[in-house]
Design a protein around this nucleic acid. Sequence first.
DNA 1: CCTTGCCCTAGAGTAATGTCTAGGGTTTAA
DNA 2: TTAAACCCTAGACATTACTCTAGGGCAAGG
Lengths: 148, 148
Amino acid sequence: MTYTIKEVAAKVNLSIYTLRFYDKQGLLPFVARNAAGYREFTVGDLNLLKTICCLKNTGMKIKDIRKYIDYVMAGPASVKQRRELLLKHRQEVVAQQKKIEQNLAEVDYKINMYTAPDAEKSVSNEIALAIADKVANHLPNPYEMLQK
Amino acid sequence: MTYTIKEVAAKVNLSIYTLRFYDKQGLLPFVARNAAGYREFTVGDLNLLKTICCLKNTGMKIKDIRKYIDYVMAGPASVKQRRELLLKHRQEVVAQQKKIEQNLAEVDYKINMYTAPDAEKSVSNEIALAIADKVANHLPNPYEMLQK
DNA sequence: CCTTGCCCTAGAGTAATGTCTAGGGTTTAA
DNA sequence: TTAAACCCTAGACATTACTCTAGGGCAAGG
Protein backbone atom coordinates (compact mmCIF):
# COMPACT_ATOMS: atom_id res chain seq x y z
CA MET A 1 0.00 0.00 0.00
CA THR A 2 1.23 3.50 -0.84
CA TYR A 3 -0.06 7.00 -0.14
CA THR A 4 -0.81 9.88 -2.48
CA ILE A 5 0.57 13.32 -1.78
CA LYS A 6 -2.84 14.40 -0.52
CA GLU A 7 -3.02 11.60 2.01
CA VAL A 8 0.50 12.27 3.21
CA ALA A 9 -0.22 15.97 3.55
CA ALA A 10 -3.11 15.16 5.86
CA LYS A 11 -1.03 12.70 7.89
CA VAL A 12 1.90 15.02 8.58
CA ASN A 13 -0.12 18.22 8.65
CA LEU A 14 1.67 19.96 5.83
CA SER A 15 0.13 21.40 2.69
CA ILE A 16 0.54 19.65 -0.66
CA TYR A 17 2.40 22.76 -1.76
CA THR A 18 4.86 22.40 1.06
CA LEU A 19 5.51 18.74 0.30
CA ARG A 20 6.23 19.54 -3.33
CA PHE A 21 8.40 22.44 -2.19
CA TYR A 22 10.34 20.11 0.10
CA ASP A 23 10.80 17.70 -2.78
CA LYS A 24 12.10 20.53 -4.95
CA GLN A 25 14.54 21.40 -2.17
CA GLY A 26 15.93 17.88 -2.22
CA LEU A 27 14.33 16.71 1.02
CA LEU A 28 12.43 13.82 -0.56
CA PRO A 29 14.83 12.07 -2.96
CA PHE A 30 13.53 8.72 -1.68
CA VAL A 31 9.95 9.19 -2.89
CA ALA A 32 9.19 7.14 -6.01
CA ARG A 33 6.97 8.08 -8.93
CA ASN A 34 4.45 5.88 -10.75
CA ALA A 35 4.14 5.60 -14.53
CA ALA A 36 2.18 8.85 -14.68
CA GLY A 37 4.79 10.75 -12.71
CA TYR A 38 2.70 10.81 -9.52
CA ARG A 39 4.52 10.54 -6.20
CA GLU A 40 3.93 7.30 -4.31
CA PHE A 41 4.81 7.40 -0.62
CA THR A 42 5.57 4.13 1.14
CA VAL A 43 5.28 3.65 4.89
CA GLY A 44 9.04 3.90 5.07
CA ASP A 45 8.92 7.21 3.23
CA LEU A 46 6.38 8.45 5.73
CA ASN A 47 8.68 7.56 8.61
CA LEU A 48 11.54 9.50 7.13
CA LEU A 49 9.21 12.38 6.40
CA LYS A 50 8.17 12.39 10.04
CA THR A 51 11.81 12.74 10.99
CA ILE A 52 12.06 15.65 8.59
CA CYS A 53 9.09 17.23 10.37
CA CYS A 54 10.77 16.77 13.74
CA LEU A 55 13.83 18.57 12.50
CA LYS A 56 11.72 21.32 10.96
CA ASN A 57 9.59 21.62 14.11
CA THR A 58 12.70 22.12 16.20
CA GLY A 59 13.75 24.93 13.88
CA MET A 60 16.30 23.28 11.64
CA LYS A 61 16.90 25.09 8.35
CA ILE A 62 15.93 23.29 5.16
CA LYS A 63 19.54 23.37 4.02
CA ASP A 64 20.59 21.38 7.09
CA ILE A 65 17.69 18.98 6.79
CA ARG A 66 18.84 18.30 3.26
CA LYS A 67 22.30 17.58 4.55
CA TYR A 68 20.82 15.07 6.99
CA ILE A 69 18.78 13.42 4.22
CA ASP A 70 21.87 13.25 2.05
CA TYR A 71 23.58 11.37 4.86
CA VAL A 72 20.63 9.02 5.16
CA MET A 73 20.74 8.28 1.46
CA ALA A 74 24.44 7.55 1.79
CA GLY A 75 23.66 4.57 4.01
CA PRO A 76 25.17 3.21 7.23
CA ALA A 77 28.60 4.69 6.52
CA SER A 78 27.29 8.14 7.43
CA VAL A 79 26.17 7.27 10.95
CA LYS A 80 28.89 9.36 12.52
CA GLN A 81 28.09 12.46 10.45
CA ARG A 82 24.38 12.05 11.15
CA ARG A 83 25.08 11.88 14.84
CA GLU A 84 27.28 14.96 14.75
CA LEU A 85 24.73 16.94 12.79
CA LEU A 86 21.90 16.02 15.17
CA LEU A 87 24.00 16.64 18.26
CA LYS A 88 24.97 20.08 17.05
CA HIS A 89 21.35 20.82 16.26
CA ARG A 90 20.32 19.57 19.67
CA GLN A 91 22.72 21.94 21.36
CA GLU A 92 21.38 24.88 19.40
CA VAL A 93 17.80 23.96 20.23
CA VAL A 94 18.55 23.65 23.94
CA ALA A 95 20.39 26.97 23.92
CA GLN A 96 17.47 28.61 22.15
CA GLN A 97 15.00 27.10 24.62
CA LYS A 98 17.03 28.47 27.49
CA LYS A 99 17.19 31.91 25.92
CA ILE A 100 13.45 31.95 25.41
CA GLU A 101 12.89 30.85 28.97
CA GLN A 102 15.00 33.70 30.28
CA ASN A 103 13.28 36.28 28.13
CA LEU A 104 9.90 34.88 29.08
CA ALA A 105 10.78 35.44 32.72
CA GLU A 106 11.07 39.15 31.92
CA VAL A 107 7.72 39.06 30.20
CA ASP A 108 6.27 37.36 33.26
CA TYR A 109 7.61 40.18 35.37
CA LYS A 110 5.64 42.62 33.24
CA ILE A 111 2.53 40.46 33.39
CA ASN A 112 2.76 40.39 37.16
CA MET A 113 3.08 44.14 37.25
CA TYR A 114 0.02 44.54 35.05
CA THR A 115 -1.88 42.03 37.16
CA ALA A 116 -1.23 43.66 40.52
CA PRO A 117 -4.05 45.75 41.99
CA ASP A 118 -1.88 48.86 41.87
CA ALA A 119 -0.95 48.28 38.23
CA GLU A 120 -2.17 51.64 37.00
CA LYS A 121 -0.21 53.40 39.70
CA SER A 122 3.00 51.52 38.82
CA VAL A 123 2.52 52.34 35.17
CA SER A 124 1.90 56.00 35.93
CA ASN A 125 5.09 56.03 37.91
CA GLU A 126 7.00 54.41 35.05
CA ILE A 127 5.76 57.05 32.65
CA ALA A 128 6.55 59.86 35.09
CA LEU A 129 10.11 58.60 35.28
CA ALA A 130 10.39 58.29 31.51
CA ILE A 131 9.11 61.84 31.10
CA ALA A 132 11.51 63.18 33.73
CA ASP A 133 14.30 61.45 31.82
CA LYS A 134 13.24 63.26 28.67
CA VAL A 135 12.89 66.63 30.33
CA ALA A 136 16.26 66.34 32.05
CA ASN A 137 17.79 65.90 28.61
CA HIS A 138 15.83 68.78 27.05
CA LEU A 139 13.98 66.38 24.77
CA PRO A 140 10.35 66.52 23.65
CA ASN A 141 7.93 64.44 25.67
CA PRO A 142 6.34 61.67 23.58
CA TYR A 143 3.70 61.03 26.24
CA GLU A 144 2.45 64.57 25.96
CA MET A 145 -1.16 63.64 25.27
CA LEU A 146 -1.28 61.88 28.61
CA GLN A 147 -0.75 65.04 30.63
CA LYS A 148 -3.96 66.36 32.05
CA MET B 1 22.92 61.58 29.44
CA THR B 2 21.63 60.06 26.17
CA TYR B 3 22.91 57.35 23.85
CA THR B 4 23.53 57.39 20.11
CA ILE B 5 22.10 54.68 17.90
CA LYS B 6 25.52 53.05 17.72
CA GLU B 7 25.82 52.83 21.49
CA VAL B 8 22.32 51.44 21.82
CA ALA B 9 22.98 48.87 19.09
CA ALA B 10 25.96 47.62 21.08
CA LYS B 11 23.98 47.53 24.31
CA VAL B 12 21.05 45.50 23.02
CA ASN B 13 23.03 43.49 20.50
CA LEU B 14 21.13 44.59 17.42
CA SER B 15 22.55 46.17 14.30
CA ILE B 16 22.06 49.86 13.63
CA TYR B 17 20.12 48.77 10.55
CA THR B 18 17.73 46.76 12.66
CA LEU B 19 17.14 49.60 15.08
CA ARG B 20 16.29 51.95 12.22
CA PHE B 21 14.10 49.23 10.74
CA TYR B 22 12.26 48.88 14.05
CA ASP B 23 11.78 52.61 14.16
CA LYS B 24 10.37 52.52 10.62
CA GLN B 25 8.00 49.78 11.77
CA GLY B 26 6.68 52.02 14.53
CA LEU B 27 8.39 50.24 17.41
CA LEU B 28 10.30 53.29 18.63
CA PRO B 29 7.87 56.23 18.58
CA PHE B 30 9.24 57.34 21.95
CA VAL B 31 12.78 58.03 20.73
CA ALA B 32 13.47 61.75 20.36
CA ARG B 33 15.62 63.49 17.75
CA ASN B 34 18.11 66.28 18.25
CA ALA B 35 18.37 69.41 16.12
CA ALA B 36 20.28 67.54 13.42
CA GLY B 37 17.67 64.77 13.23
CA TYR B 38 19.82 62.27 15.13
CA ARG B 39 18.08 59.83 17.44
CA GLU B 40 18.77 60.38 21.14
CA PHE B 41 18.00 57.43 23.38
CA THR B 42 17.36 58.10 27.05
CA VAL B 43 17.77 55.46 29.76
CA GLY B 44 14.00 55.11 29.79
CA ASP B 45 14.01 54.49 26.05
CA LEU B 46 16.62 51.81 26.55
CA ASN B 47 14.42 50.08 29.13
CA LEU B 48 11.48 50.00 26.78
CA LEU B 49 13.73 48.79 23.98
CA LYS B 50 14.88 45.97 26.21
CA THR B 51 11.27 44.95 26.66
CA ILE B 52 10.90 45.00 22.88
CA CYS B 53 13.90 42.69 22.66
CA CYS B 54 12.33 40.30 25.18
CA LEU B 55 9.21 40.11 23.09
CA LYS B 56 11.22 39.64 19.94
CA ASN B 57 13.45 37.02 21.57
CA THR B 58 10.40 35.04 22.58
CA GLY B 59 9.22 35.07 19.00
CA MET B 60 6.63 37.83 18.98
CA LYS B 61 5.89 39.26 15.53
CA ILE B 62 6.78 42.89 14.92
CA LYS B 63 3.13 43.67 14.27
CA ASP B 64 2.22 42.51 17.78
CA ILE B 65 5.15 44.27 19.36
CA ARG B 66 3.90 47.44 17.73
CA LYS B 67 0.50 46.83 19.22
CA TYR B 68 2.11 46.52 22.65
CA ILE B 69 4.08 49.73 22.15
CA ASP B 70 0.94 51.49 21.03
CA TYR B 71 -0.64 50.45 24.31
CA VAL B 72 2.36 51.71 26.23
CA MET B 73 2.13 55.06 24.50
CA ALA B 74 -1.54 55.22 25.43
CA GLY B 75 -0.62 55.34 29.10
CA PRO B 76 -2.01 53.66 32.22
CA ALA B 77 -5.50 53.24 30.74
CA SER B 78 -4.21 50.39 28.56
CA VAL B 79 -2.97 48.20 31.40
CA LYS B 80 -5.67 45.62 30.83
CA GLN B 81 -4.99 45.32 27.11
CA ARG B 82 -1.25 45.08 27.72
CA ARG B 83 -1.83 42.30 30.18
CA GLU B 84 -4.09 40.40 27.80
CA LEU B 85 -1.65 40.76 24.93
CA LEU B 86 1.27 39.51 27.03
CA LEU B 87 -0.73 36.67 28.55
CA LYS B 88 -1.81 35.45 25.13
CA HIS B 89 1.77 35.66 23.93
CA ARG B 90 2.94 33.79 26.99
CA GLN B 91 0.56 30.95 26.27
CA GLU B 92 1.77 30.70 22.69
CA VAL B 93 5.39 30.67 23.80
CA VAL B 94 4.78 27.94 26.36
CA ALA B 95 2.88 25.86 23.79
CA GLN B 96 5.71 26.31 21.31
CA GLN B 97 8.29 25.34 23.92
CA LYS B 98 6.35 22.19 24.66
CA LYS B 99 6.07 21.30 20.99
CA ILE B 100 9.79 21.76 20.51
CA GLU B 101 10.51 19.65 23.55
CA GLN B 102 8.40 16.81 22.19
CA ASN B 103 10.00 16.94 18.78
CA LEU B 104 13.42 17.14 20.35
CA ALA B 105 12.67 13.91 22.19
CA GLU B 106 12.29 12.24 18.81
CA VAL B 107 15.58 13.70 17.69
CA ASP B 108 17.16 12.40 20.88
CA TYR B 109 15.86 8.96 20.03
CA LYS B 110 17.72 9.14 16.73
CA ILE B 111 20.85 10.44 18.42
CA ASN B 112 20.77 7.53 20.81
CA MET B 113 20.39 5.10 17.96
CA TYR B 114 23.35 6.65 16.18
CA THR B 115 25.38 6.58 19.38
CA ALA B 116 24.83 2.92 20.24
CA PRO B 117 27.66 0.53 19.42
CA ASP B 118 25.44 -1.36 16.98
CA ALA B 119 24.38 1.84 15.21
CA GLU B 120 25.53 0.73 11.77
CA LYS B 121 23.63 -2.52 12.12
CA SER B 122 20.42 -0.72 13.14
CA VAL B 123 20.75 1.63 10.23
CA SER B 124 21.37 -1.24 7.83
CA ASN B 125 18.22 -2.84 9.12
CA GLU B 126 16.26 0.35 8.68
CA ILE B 127 17.37 0.60 5.08
CA ALA B 128 16.61 -3.06 4.43
CA LEU B 129 13.08 -2.49 5.63
CA ALA B 130 12.69 0.64 3.54
CA ILE B 131 13.91 -1.23 0.48
CA ALA B 132 11.58 -4.17 1.14
CA ASP B 133 8.76 -1.63 1.40
CA LYS B 134 9.69 -0.27 -2.02
CA VAL B 135 10.07 -3.68 -3.63
CA ALA B 136 6.74 -4.89 -2.25
CA ASN B 137 5.11 -1.96 -4.00
CA HIS B 138 7.01 -2.51 -7.26
CA LEU B 139 8.78 0.79 -6.86
CA PRO B 140 12.36 1.64 -7.79
CA ASN B 141 14.87 1.43 -4.97
CA PRO B 142 16.42 4.80 -4.15
CA TYR B 143 19.15 3.17 -2.08
CA GLU B 144 20.39 1.21 -5.05
CA MET B 145 23.96 2.41 -4.87
CA LEU B 146 24.22 0.93 -1.40
CA GLN B 147 23.73 -2.65 -2.60
CA LYS B 148 27.00 -4.55 -2.85
C1' DC C 1 -17.28 9.96 -23.84
C1' DC C 2 -17.20 13.39 -20.47
C1' DT C 3 -16.99 15.55 -16.20
C1' DT C 4 -14.87 15.83 -11.79
C1' DG C 5 -11.19 15.51 -9.08
C1' DC C 6 -6.73 14.32 -8.61
C1' DC C 7 -1.79 14.68 -10.11
C1' DC C 8 2.31 17.17 -12.38
C1' DT C 9 5.89 21.20 -13.44
C1' DA C 10 7.59 25.83 -13.89
C1' DG C 11 7.65 29.80 -12.25
C1' DA C 12 5.46 33.96 -10.22
C1' DG C 13 3.94 35.99 -5.88
C1' DT C 14 3.91 36.77 -0.80
C1' DA C 15 5.28 37.68 3.94
C1' DA C 16 8.48 38.50 7.48
C1' DT C 17 12.70 40.34 8.81
C1' DG C 18 16.29 42.22 8.02
C1' DT C 19 20.68 44.26 5.38
C1' DC C 20 22.82 47.33 2.48
C1' DT C 21 23.63 51.33 -0.85
C1' DA C 22 23.38 55.95 -2.51
C1' DG C 23 23.33 60.42 -1.54
C1' DG C 24 23.81 63.79 1.70
C1' DG C 25 24.33 66.38 6.27
C1' DT C 26 27.04 66.73 11.11
C1' DT C 27 30.62 66.44 14.59
C1' DT C 28 35.10 66.12 16.17
C1' DA C 29 39.80 66.35 16.50
C1' DA C 30 44.18 67.18 14.45
C1' DT D 1 39.54 73.70 7.80
C1' DT D 2 39.45 69.41 6.46
C1' DA D 3 39.39 64.31 7.00
C1' DA D 4 37.44 60.65 9.60
C1' DA D 5 33.77 58.99 11.70
C1' DC D 6 29.23 59.65 12.75
C1' DC D 7 24.22 60.40 11.64
C1' DC D 8 20.01 60.57 8.36
C1' DT D 9 16.37 58.81 4.63
C1' DA D 10 14.59 56.30 0.76
C1' DG D 11 14.56 52.55 -1.35
C1' DA D 12 16.76 48.45 -3.45
C1' DC D 13 18.25 43.77 -2.38
C1' DA D 14 18.48 39.37 0.24
C1' DT D 15 16.85 35.28 2.64
C1' DT D 16 13.74 31.86 4.17
C1' DA D 17 9.91 29.38 3.58
C1' DC D 18 6.28 28.86 1.69
C1' DT D 19 1.79 29.60 -1.43
C1' DC D 20 -0.45 29.96 -5.49
C1' DT D 21 -1.38 30.16 -10.69
C1' DA D 22 -1.22 28.59 -15.32
C1' DG D 23 -1.26 25.06 -18.26
C1' DG D 24 -1.71 20.45 -18.94
C1' DG D 25 -2.06 15.18 -18.11
C1' DC D 26 -4.44 11.04 -15.78
C1' DA D 27 -8.28 8.27 -13.47
C1' DA D 28 -12.80 6.84 -12.08
C1' DG D 29 -17.86 7.16 -12.05
C1' DG D 30 -22.20 8.13 -14.63
